[in-house]
């Protein structure tokens, strides 16, 4: 297999050079937009202070200054971003594995997220992009970036009496990061969930007692691997089934994966599928605006983020089909 460096030089470089021009233009055009917005808002603020008009009027000023930003986005940035996602990311995906397909606007369906039962809260708002899907060996996989929020309507105490707005919505994040779904190599009927172990790390034995009270996710399953138990807590409906899924070797593999990635990882085994949620704070697979595209370390970052997820198939040995499920 070719090295990433060689691939970068021969396949990506020509496109990146073109894109770099688009990026530079977008960046250059952004400067007047930002300067205008800053000066305009400052001027309005001073004007309001002098005339003694209510501060709410600033909202209008903000709206006006947003117009050039939208125009800039539509005219310069969107085209650049789309080109990047149409050209560069698919090439990286194909480089990692020729069987994989990339869709910039696709996402892992909301039903998969709900079926995983990893998060108890209801996903009211579900967004995502950068879907990668395909079959690696005998395992069908898909993953995408997703962002899931819960929305709560709360009474608005600050609203004046008689005003029409009595409630306002408050948005709580549930999950942001990469969500991976794959066909699991063993068949099973219930749901087994592996979560990062926060309570036990902090409180030790007390934490374990608290985990036992968490009945909504199922029974607490205490496994034999001490390293795995230190990092994760497992809930399931069936003590034997959970151990059937989490064989001693799979526990070691999950531990190794966690140690290598150093991310917050949640796994769920439900409906013969494996779901993995890896939390990320930053946006993934987005083009840079301020820094040069012609930087190998940046391409390597896209590659590493993607490889991290795709490697789950090999690391968790999902292509071993020696059980009755083929």
């Amino acid at each position: 297999m070719r090295s990433l460096e060689a691939f970068y030089e021969s396949e990506l470089m020509p496109d990146l050079v073109q894109l770099e021009d688009l990026r530079k233009t977008a960046k250059k055009r952004m400067v007047p937009v930002v300067v205008f917005a800053a000066l305009f808002n400052l001027a309005c603020l001073i004007l309001l202070a002098k005339t003694g008009l209510p501060l709410n009027m600033m909202l209008i000023a903000l709206c006006i200054s947003a117009v050039p930003v939208f125009i800039w986005y539509a005219k310069y940035f969107k085209g650049y971003k789309d080109r990047f996602k149409d050209v560069i990311i698919p090439k990286i995906v194909a480089f990692i594995h020729p069987e994989l397909k990339y869709e910039k606007n696709g996402m892992v369906p909301k039903t998969a997220f709900i079926n995983s039962r990893l998060f108890a809260e209801h996903p009211d708002r579900y967004y995502g992009d950068d879907l990668v899907s395909g079959t690696l060996g005998r395992t069908a996989i898909q993953f995408s970036e997703i962002q899931v929020n819960r929305v709560e309507r709360v009474r608005d105490h600050s609203a004046e009496a008689g005003s029409s707005r009595k409630t306002r919505t408050r948005v709580y994040p549930i999950f942001k990061g990469l969500f991976f779904a794959a066909d699991f190599n063993k068949s099973f009927s219930g749901t087994t969930i592996v979560l990062p172990d926060k309570a036990e790390k902090l409180l030790g034995g007390m934490g374990q007692a608290l985990q036992k009270l968490n009945v909504q996710k199922g029974e607490l399953i205490k496994l034999e691997d001490p390293e795995f138990e230190r990092l994760f807590v497992v809930y399931g409906q069936d003590q034997v089934e959970a151990r059937y899924i989490l064989s001693t070797s799979l526990m070691q593999r999950i531990t190794a994966f966690q140690t290598r990635t150093q991310k917050e990882i949640r796994l769920s085994f439900s409906g013969n599928m494996l779901y993995v949620a890896i939390a990320f704070d930053r946006e993934l697979f987005e083009p840079a605006l301020m820094d040069s595209l012609l930087d190998f370390s940046r391409i390597k970052e896209y590659y590493d983020d993607m490889k991290l997820v795709i490697d789950i198939v090999d690391e968790l040995n999902l292509n071993t089909r020696i059980w009755s499920k083929q």
Binding site: K186, E224, V240, R243, Y244
Partner: peptide, 16 residues
């Protein structure tokens, strides 16, 4: 494959 599966389930049951 069936035997492997039962074997794996037995090992899980032993652990449980």
């Amino acid at each position: 494959a069936s035997l492997n599966e039962v074997e794996e389930q037995i090992s899980a049951a032993r652990r449980a």
